[in-house]
Simulated assay, not measured.
Amino acid sequence: MLQQPAPRYQGHKSYSYLEPHTDYRVFPLAQEVGRVPEHDLGLSDGQRERVTRLLTEHIAISLHEHPVVLPEDVSRLREYNRTARQRTGYEGLSRSGLTAVFDNFMAGASCVTSENGWKWNDLIYALGMRMSDIYQQDYVTLATSLADIHAAKRDGRLALVAGLECSSPIENELDRIDILYGFGVRQLGIAYSQANMLGGGLSERHDGGLTHFGRRAVDRMNKLGIAIDISHSGDQTCLDVIEASRVPVFITHAGARSVWDTSRMKPDEVIRACAERGGVIGIEAAPHTTLSAEHPHHSLESVMDHFAYCVDLVGIDHVTFGPDTMFGDHVGVHNTYAGNYAHDAGNRPEHPRVEYVSGVENPGEAFGNIVGWLVKHDYSDDEIAKVIGGNTIRVLEQVW
């Protein structure tokens, strides 16, 4: 369900304070609005009005996105990323209905100094360049506290929470966590599919769990007030992190392995353990992840099968959404970086391939359609308020 642009948005385009072709390289970019057909939920006028009211009245937080605009020709993605000037999708975000977005800067794809990503220097490029542009406009604002998120809601702005889905760039330097905190980062993942100094990734056939250094890192994140993400960690590492952390942790973007049997999804044991310690799982929507036997052609319906299962498993107080979308050809991103990062150590069930995930294709449309689905399926206002932001706020009150 496409929202109208936020009144506060004044049309800023990334790096428009610089001179194109002189200060930075120019790439034709993907459309932020209208790149794919609008998803038709079949809502009545009254239901559409309710969606708008819910997003207006309540805080809506996407727990995991990459709200950058990709090049129109995705074959130029590595060339684009090497410039370190990924563009923020301000126009698309202005139509999202979101109060806040956890922006997981694409450090793994910011291959400025290395083709393999996750290097400390490349991470600093990714953070610094994007932040320099964010500070040049008045709609998206960096959030480092709950007060900032509430202020954004009050002022008609969109709060951006800086996050990283992998701690590999800190190497064995614990103080780099403090440096990232100083740069405004408020959420960190443990491992991105492959093992690192902290623990095991979900693509490894043998997960040794959280390392001694990983336990020290978890302790440091707790002391600083950095939310911990275990979405791409191996199962044992997930359980170890949940146990080691003194505050609840997030599974910011995943689904249920009982619904779709791949290592990218989380087993019931991990989802339950996360919830029992007060944590929350954000339901993923990146192409070819949260599929289901009932809806193997990936769409909003597939995603919501995982949502419904997790609500039944751990209760509505422990589920939210982290769609993990971007503006442009997400499938093309996966194809471009397929050689860099393995995602599945084991089986890959057969399923139809899609060009995009209808209904949750980008950060501008995802939450409007998610709320539309919830309205259509008769969830109460209170239940919807919890799963679009209230549950995340509750965890952040303990973490931050």
Rank of each mutant, 00 (worst) to 15 (best):
D378N: 12
Q47A: 13
H21A: 14
N121S: 15
W120F: 15
Q10D: 15
I228R: 08
N196C: 06
V319T: 12
A227R: 05
L70I: 06
Q10F: 03
H330K: 13
V140A: 12
W373K: 07
V387R: 04
V280M: 09
S114P: 12
T211L: 09
I393E: 12
D178L: 10
A107G: 13
S258N: 15
R246Q: 15
F367N: 00
R87L: 08
T22I: 15
P71N: 04
V112M: 10
E243M: 06
G97H: 02
V319K: 09
D103V: 08
L164D: 04
I59A: 11
L374G: 01
E301F: 02
V354D: 02
S168T: 10
S145L: 09
D73R: 01
M221W: 05
A107E: 06
M1P: 04
I230Y: 05
M1F: 01
D305V: 02
V101C: 11
Q10H: 05
E284F: 05
L54I: 14
A286V: 09
E301W: 01
D317E: 14
V51Y: 01
R87P: 00
Y337W: 07
N340A: 02
V241F: 11
K223T: 12
G390A: 04
V360E: 00
S94A: 11
A273G: 09
V354Q: 02
V375S: 07
L313A: 03
T83Q: 04
G189W: 05
V101A: 11
V161C: 08
H206Q: 13
I190Y: 07
V387E: 03
C166M: 02
H150K: 15
A385E: 07
